[in-house]
């Protein structure tokens, strides 16, 4: 009887010590999933996802609070990469419903102050002081961060028409018996 109690206690104690040691040895600092999610995001800190930056959004995604399709600058590629990483079902990009837009600078009103150049997270606006600024439409993610700094309010978001560079084959309608 005593042997049995002693043996089981010792066994439990040894295993407990082992687990305690491994918990210290393999301690996880921070949230490694949030790091991986953060690495996949566009890092333009544009806030279009509704979070104050890429890192807070990454943390929300890692926790499972946020949908994975909110990173608009990252586009569908980011959404798909996140779906792969987290083992979730890929979802179509949230902004897909709205037509894609780009910033357009009114060349009559622009005073060349370079404030919008500094505010652009993806360096899509080029310009020098007292010169007319221009937008690189291929780089612009339509985040809208350049709108508020402009002192003369000469920047607008205009929808991109479907030209040969932007036209996409319409998605096939699936017949799923789910």
């Amino acid at each position: 009887m005593l042997t049995a109690i002693l043996a089981m206690t010792t066994l439990a104690a040894v295993l407990g010590l082992l687990l305690g040691y491994s918990a210290i040895r393999f301690r996880v600092e921070g949230d490694p999933i949030a790091d991986q999610v953060d690495a996949l995001l566009a890092q333009s800190q544009c806030g279009q996802c509704g979070y104050p930056g890429c890192r807070p959004y990454a943390e929300a995604v890692a926790k499972g609070d946020a949908a994975i399709n909110k990173c608009i600058p990252g586009g569908e590629a980011t959404a798909r990469a996140l779906a792969d990483l987290l083992g979730r079902e890929p979802e179509p990009l949230e902004a897909e419903a709205q037509t894609p837009k780009v910033a357009l600078i009114d060349d009559q009103a622009c005073i060349g102050c370079t404030l919008c150049v500094q505010s652009c997270p993806v360096d899509a606006i080029v310009g020098a002081p007292k010169q007319l600024h221009g937008v690189l439409t291929a780089e612009c993610t339509a985040c809208g961060l350049c709108l508020s700094p402009c002192p003369v309010a000469c920047i607008r978001m205009v929808p991109v028409g479907s030209d040969i560079a932007h036209w996409r084959w319409p998605a096939p309608t699936e017949r799923l018996a789910a």
Binding site: M8, L11, A12, L15, G16, L18, L19, S22, A23, F26, R27, V28, P32, I33, Q36, L85, L86, G87
Partner: peptide, 23 residues
């Protein structure tokens, strides 16, 4: 005794996996 050992091994695996393969 077996269940004790198995539970410990599983807990160990969980700890290591949390570190090595968080996803």
């Amino acid at each position: 005794a077996y269940i004790l050992v198995i539970a410990a091994v599983v807990q160990f695996t969980e700890t290591v996996m949390h570190r090595q393969s968080p996803v």
